[in-house]
Design a binder for these strands. Structure first.
Lengths: 120, 120
DNA sequence: TACCTTGTTCGATGTTTTACGAACAGCGAA
DNA sequence: TTCGCTGTTCGTAAAACATCGAACAAGGTA
């Protein structure tokens, strides 16, 4: 019934440093953030990660609950995007610093997107 | 015998983003980092945190293993300090961004030092 | 030497996290 | 309506984590 509980996204004030750090303490999630770092909204199906879909769903929820991403549902499919402006407002400099290191170390390398670019 | 295994500190190359983020995903550890953020070396006994000493020891080890702090042993007591330069070299901007937010949100507020300033 | 102080290590425990496959629910298409 | 596709939720299991008290080890002190 209330299966898709219309995903609640935390407001700026609800985001906590500890939750964000926790969300970014997993390589898969860092990989997802990196994929979304180009600012483009991505379809769930575009995302590739070496885990079962239920696990991927879990990771996306952790990111969303921490306030890192925004999920939009359109009919049957979901789209995810990085809440870059919100993050920069709430945690100035943090996201950029993390992305910079993640890029340099190639953290979350096995996370990617299908080259099936049918959007944007 | 080898109780105090002379604490190994990871070199710059051994530090990982994920480990650092994990280390900073606990309010007590963030509080410890805040306390050390003034650059002063602190004695173990100076640190106050609302946990048992064995737990505090554990948290200090997590921080040390992630490369955030350096521990020095002098006779019977230990001294801890933040590896600020190393962190800035390895993760540019990250520590400052975290400290800034932690200060603003007062993360790890119940962690402090005894005003027993008998050092420096 | 016998004791005390200091911090680590050792279990033990309860909680949280990660992971999977299966079942389910919503939506669109046949 | 009946399928099929998509993503969430559930049940479960394994691993990691936070926490404590007790035991221990190393160094200083009496």
């Amino acid at each position: 019934m209330v299966t898709v509980k219309q995903a609640r996204h935390p407001g700026l004030e609800e985001m906590t440093l500890v939750a964000v750090m926790g969300a970014l303490s997993d390589p898969i999630r860092v990989g997802l953030v990196r994929v979304l770092a180009d600012g483009r909204e991505r379809g769930w199906g575009e995302l590739r990660a070496p885990v079962a879909k239920s696990t991927l769903s879990h990771h996306l929820r952790v990111l969303r609950d921490a306030g890192l991403t925004r999920t939009r549902q359109e009919g049957t499919r979901c789209f995810v995007e990085l809440r870059r402006e919100d993050l920069n407002a709430r945690f100035p400099g943090l996201l950029e610093a993390v992305l910079e290191v993640a890029r340099g170390d190639d953290v979350g390398a096995h996370v990617g997107v299908t080259d099936d670019s049918n959007r944007t």
